[in-house]
Design a protein around this nucleic acid. Sequence first.
DNA 1: ACAGCTAATGATATCGATATCAAGACATCG
DNA 2: CGATGTCTTGATATCGATATCATTAGCTGT
Lengths: 335, 335
Amino acid sequence: MSRTRKDRPGRTGSLTMADLAELAGVSKITVSRALADSPLVTPETRERIQALARDHGYKLNVSARNLRLRRSHTVAVIVEMKPSSDRTMLDPYPLTLLGGIAQELTAAGYSVLLTTRQGAAAAAVQAADGLILLGQGVRQDAVRRFDKLGLPMVVWGAHGEEDAHAVVGSDNRMGGRLVAEHFLRQGRRHPVFVGNPSHPEIFERLSGFVDTLTAHGIKPLLLRRDEFTLASGIDAVHSLATRKVPFDALFACSDLLAMGAIRAVQELGRKVPDDCSVVGYDDMPMAAAFQPALSSVRQDWQAGGSLLAQKMLALIAGEPVESQVLPVSLVARAT
Amino acid sequence: MSRTRKDRPGRTGSLTMADLAELAGVSKITVSRALADSPLVTPETRERIQALARDHGYKLNVSARNLRLRRSHTVAVIVEMKPSSDRTMLDPYPLTLLGGIAQELTAAGYSVLLTTRQGAAAAAVQAADGLILLGQGVRQDAVRRFDKLGLPMVVWGAHGEEDAHAVVGSDNRMGGRLVAEHFLRQGRRHPVFVGNPSHPEIFERLSGFVDTLTAHGIKPLLLRRDEFTLASGIDAVHSLATRKVPFDALFACSDLLAMGAIRAVQELGRKVPDDCSVVGYDDMPMAAAFQPALSSVRQDWQAGGSLLAQKMLALIAGEPVESQVLPVSLVARAT
DNA sequence: ACAGCTAATGATATCGATATCAAGACATCG
DNA sequence: CGATGTCTTGATATCGATATCATTAGCTGT
């Protein structure tokens, strides 16, 4: 029984370049060149081999090529996906960041390898040409751990004092300041920040907010809420009411939280924005259709993703890359 | 100053098993076994080698292993990302599907390779152990094209008549029927469907909607809108008003569209739901906080993602897999 | 003591592609 | 006519891991 490669059991039934070479009566390397459109082979034989490859459904073995070329045209994106009640990357908005990254990288011919920090899958990360970290603070140990891989790396989040790598993030401090100024213009006396400041980005919003207000002699209250849900916003306001804490302005660090808060304030029989103004964060599309129309700080997640990807591509190309903060803007509507 | 990249001279900078072997005074294969916790090596030498690997920061070359083992522990997810005005996978909700997939697969030790249909990046797909297709209709040529790769494949979307592969999707027809019955119970006479029926899933919603209504002697109107935005919803209602078409019930195929429509209806001086009831789709979290509280068809994208992933894992394990439709439910609120 | 057995390790081939260098065919030029 | 150069193709080594089969050391049993 002749062992032709045609009758290999099962597998993918895929031929190798060696098979093609035999079929065409040339050597492997000629096949390799022909398929790569190398000018080193006669147009005639190139055509012939390419046709052969098409007809027989030849499929390149990417692992073999990656091994030989020592690059994978793949960028790993590592997201924080702890199943806790914390805001996870599985939320729609952080995922938008991923969408921006994917769009930019695939346009450049790169693939995106999506992984979590935990899990055995982390092994695959090492095959990547670069690393984008989402959802973990910059100073976390995770960042240092991945730094050890020696891969080009870009991080999304708050900026550290002395970052060893490029960081891209929204200007959260500016977001806090804009809202503070908004409240000051309205003459509010008892502003409250609602959110989870243990999250570095949100901490920055808080500090921009607090700094601006205290500079004007106003001392805001911090109401800590870990969840970014409607219920959490409602609950936050209830908590203020039962404690009889005075408040006339709320800065919630997500739109959902803000909407919940507004409903709760209204249920207390108080008017928004007359008795209490409210500002959210992210400016989701329906913020404008909310009643009353929600004021919110807009940050462009998708643009952030694109930027992360662009910096990554630059790093891979060996160019130097700087950290960058993306400006945010306050969209002042009714509340 | 940019210290973006570790500047090692020449080489890849990382050692290989051969290097470790030399350091430990054993052979490559012993190193391989030691690192794989194989019982074939003495616990003592295993410890020694593992310590050595740690100390020297040894990193496995995944491409090499993939080549040898002929599997990559990677599942490719191919999403439709055309930059048209169509609903793209970059929208938050379809991305949630991806979140579910990622969570399930990474928990099982697999990585997710995210790619678009176009682009050279498609090459990397062939290295995957399986393929999940999102965002393209089942009967599209794209599906057939990827089918040729001979990889385990699962598709998200509407179910075809005779599918050659496993399809998972929401029960869109049921969604349409539920809304139709809701309108019938309310005694509505002039229901309108707002959305883009060229999208197979949305076409199913439409047909479930229409079939149920016509069975009760009511003929709904189709108002075609391609975008899933607030503006589009507003515009849709305006178009009805200027054409003086009578309507007393709107079924919008996204919540955003529904919210825009509601605002437009209210601006016309008509009451929701008294003069016109409205139902959206997806039941986004803030649907409940909308005023009036939005009724919506709930579909669990993330669960869909998990299910896709589970079926993929089963396929990879060689088990047979059936197509499946996920039930949806109508969350009837004020509108 | 010697055949027979297990435990631990190693030599070699292999996965499928590409880089390097060499070689044959053919044309050009002094 | 021989030397040189260009064009096309090929033989071989290599990337870094693992499978297979062979080998050695240590142990038991009668």
